[in-house]
């Protein structure tokens, strides 16, 4: 197990008081595995990712749970130990390549600084490796690109560079938070391929956040579905996508654009995500769930195994396994 998260609860303190953004989130990633995290906007995907590297803002508190990396509890690390872990053992790629790079530093220098830090090399050696790193992410003419500023490059190029930065150590785990959302469709494919290739070639585990089930089906070994700060279903990708256990996963699949009939408008899931400030009692999805029963509005269903490789948090699935 490379990474294991157990019952993580994260609260944000804001103007309107405390909000629980994550409620008992658990996940695990094996070596070389790609775990997909899906869910609508605001379901807590980014908070989950940021909590791993200790990048949540000062208004966040982790009030419960455990995150362990290769058996080491990350929540107990001091600032020094956490700093030496970031980028070196666990790399991270963010959604917005346009703003993720330093605007007034040449991309080669940005890479070299990070490489120098991770491997304790001289400036010159680091620059050489920086060019190598650009080659690894399939940038043609890496010497030339190394001398460019981010604003001189396209979004796809920048995202490759952000990935090169995150992979430079190289880390055991790559966290990618919607790495393709801001890109054109053709570029999206290339970036996903690149991530998959790095995963295959180096055995890097990947935590891939997306709200695109198509992305999940093409690159993820396992998938975890989040709703309102909770994990509602988790399992092998084909199984979850072919036969979802949770009504929310089902609804997500239903809302997928029909590739055979592109004319048909996107089907949105009816209803709204509950306000985390006033989370309803019982199942968070109850107000939108077509199969809701009496118990759903009263008591929260726990995430429990429903088959060999699958867990779900739904009263419908209790006692089936």
């Amino acid at each position: 197990m490379v990474l294991e998260m157990k019952d993580l609860c994260v609260d944000f303190t804001g103007m309107r008081g405390k909000v629980r953004a994550l409620r008992n989130v658990s996940l695990s990633i094996e070596k070389g595995e790609v775990l997909g995290v899906v869910g609508e906007s605001g379901s807590g995907k980014s908070v989950t990712a940021l909590s791993i590297l200790g990048l949540l803002g000062s208004n966040a508190t982790i009030s419960n749970g455990e995150i362990s990396y290769l058996g080491q509890n990350l929540l107990r690390l001091g600032p020094k130990e956490m700093q030496s872990l970031r980028g070196k053992k666990i790399g991270m790629v963010f959604q917005e390549p346009m703003t993720a790079l330093h605007p007034t530093m040449k991309v080669g220098s940005q890479l070299a600084e990070v490489i120098k830090r991770h491997r304790g090399l001289s400036k010159k050696q680091a620059h050489k490796l920086a060019v190598e790193a650009l080659k690894e992410v399939h940038i043609h003419d890496p010497e030339l690109v190394a001398k460019k500023y981010p604003f001189e490059l396209s979004g796809g190029m920048r995202q490759r560079i952000v990935i090169a930065l995150a992979m430079s150590a190289p880390p055991d785990l790559l966290i990618a938070d919607e790495p393709t959302t801001a890109l054109d469709v053709t570029i999206q494919k290339e970036i996903l391929q690149l991530i998959k290739e790095l995963n295959d070639k180096r055995g890097t585990s990947v935590l891939l956040i997306t709200h695109d089930l198509g992305v999940v089906s093409s690159v993820c070994d396992r998938v975890m579905v989040m709703y309102a700060g909770e994990v509602v279903e988790e399992g092998k990708t084909e199984e979850v996508l072919n036969a979802p256990s949770h009504p929310y996963t089902e609804a997500l699949l239903h809302a997928l654009p029909d590739l055979a009939d592109p004319e048909e408008p996107l089907k949105a899931i009816p209803g709204e995500v509950p306000d985390l400030q006033n989370r309803p009692a019982g199942c968070a999805f109850a107000s939108r769930c077509p199969k809701a029963m009496d118990i759903c509005g009263v008591s929260v269903p726990a995430l429990e195994p429903v088959s060999k490789n699958r867990s779900a948090a739904c009263w419908l699935r209790r006692d089936t396994y």
Partner: peptide, 29 residues
């Protein structure tokens, strides 16, 4: 607060190096 600072932190850049080399340069503009 900028995202590229968060990227730098996520890549292990920290301390005076982060403040002076990464942040101050742009803060000076």
């Amino acid at each position: 607060e900028q995202e590229y600072i968060r990227t730098a932190i996520a890549n292990g850049i920290h301390g005076p190096f982060l403040f002076f080399r990464y942040a101050l340069r742009n803060a000076l503009i």
